[in-house]
Design a protein around this nucleic acid. Structure first.
Lengths: 203, 203
DNA sequence: GCCTTGGTGGTACACCTGTATCATCAAGGC
DNA sequence: GCCTTGATGATACAGGTGTACCACCAAGGC
């Protein structure tokens, strides 16, 4: 037998190179040859470890989702166990926002993926990506907060969560778009959370 | 002299074809030949009336901005003169949201443009597109509303407006992304506006 | 020691892209 | 009547794309 190689690790290496290109030069700059060059390997090897270009793109999308998941867990771990409802929302939403260079590049790549996914349903097919799951979970968190009195009973948890997620996505786009910096986006997010968790506010 | 042709009208025809493709099949499906076919003319004519591909893409972006402007004015005109602050916000924000097929296709095209603009600053160069101008204007509207007592004095107009615009953009993406329909997005927007214009709410 | 077999290199092929070029047509001025 | 000139057609060209193919290498089983 010839020497064997960890395919999974190789694919991860290639995927990282792909996302580096997608985040800096856009998805339209992603070709098999460019990915090979960025990964420092030959075109043949990209073909060998990643059969198709569709497969390659799918790898990138999955990695992007995995990175977001990792960011959320890391941020949650950094704040310890037994997080208050507001802290949970802060952790999740600030994990989505592009607050440093790495998350900024990932958000750029994500925007590119979002655009092509709109007209290429093949990319989404079978994706584990379920934004609704996140929304459901945060809604239960907010329901608990309302029941315990941290949030006024007049608020509709599901609507509030949907709005917060949409707001965070819109803010993220404005940050990568250069309309404002991350701190400004964080301030707006905080402003909204302050209002939501102000029990002195009726309705 | 041979017969002369209205170049402006021809370019508009070509631009419309371009945006039809961008909205249905994405910007990556936009080639000179595809645009020609969609416009029902020859490749040579696309070259003749629109010299470059960069020029073509720029035409599409400008038209997209012009259409949004038109939508806002039409919606405003439909509601008569002397609009209350809340009505102004409703007009602007619901004009951004993809509420019908036409605005849905335009939003799709816009998302594609946004993605490539992130890594291709040449597209933005010299663009009349100024989201900040819209934000400034709406802020003055909200300041007036606060001074006249329609909005609680504890609110920060600039932050509220920035949040509403980001929210609307996020909601728009969720609509074209198929996460929810236009009515659901409108409901969320209304929910937020109701809260903002509720004077009984302190802070 | 050979031979199977996973890894690798190089390259060719068909296709699509943006753009340039050559030619033609037709309407009016002189 | 010709000739200038705006509008159009057809096509060629160079470059980039995804993918397929052919050769080769080297490590271990028998």
């Amino acid at each position: 037998m010839p020497r064997r190689v960890d395919h999974e690790e190789r694919r991860a290496h290639i995927t990282a190179a792909l996302l580096r290109i997608a985040g800096t030069r856009g998805l339209q700059a992603v070709s098999m040859r460019e990915v090979a060059a960025e990964a420092g390997i030959s075109l043949r090897l990209v073909q060998y470890y990643v059969s198709d270009k569709p497969t390659l793109l799918r790898l990138g999308l999955d990695e992007l989702a995995a990175r977001l998941d990792r960011r959320i867990r890391e941020r949650a771990a950094a704040r310890g166990a037994g997080l208050a409802p507001r802290a949970v929302l802060e952790v999740v939403l600030t994990s989505i926002l592009p607050v440093d260079e790495a998350s900024r590049l990932d958000r750029m790549a994500w925007s590119a993926y979002f655009a092509v996914a709109l007209t290429d349903p093949a990319l989404l097919a079978g994706a584990t990506n379920h934004p609704d799951a996140l929304e459901d979970w945060l809604t239960t968190v907010l329901v608990r907060a309302r029941d315990s009195g941290d949030v006024n009973s007049g608020r509709e948890p599901r609507t509030e969560v949907a709005a917060l997620l949409a707001l965070t996505n819109g803010l993220s786009d404005s940050v990568v778009g250069g309309q404002r910096d991350a701190d400004a986006a964080l301030a707006i997010l905080d402003y909204q959370l302050d209002r939501l968790f102000d029990r002195s506010t009726p309705a």
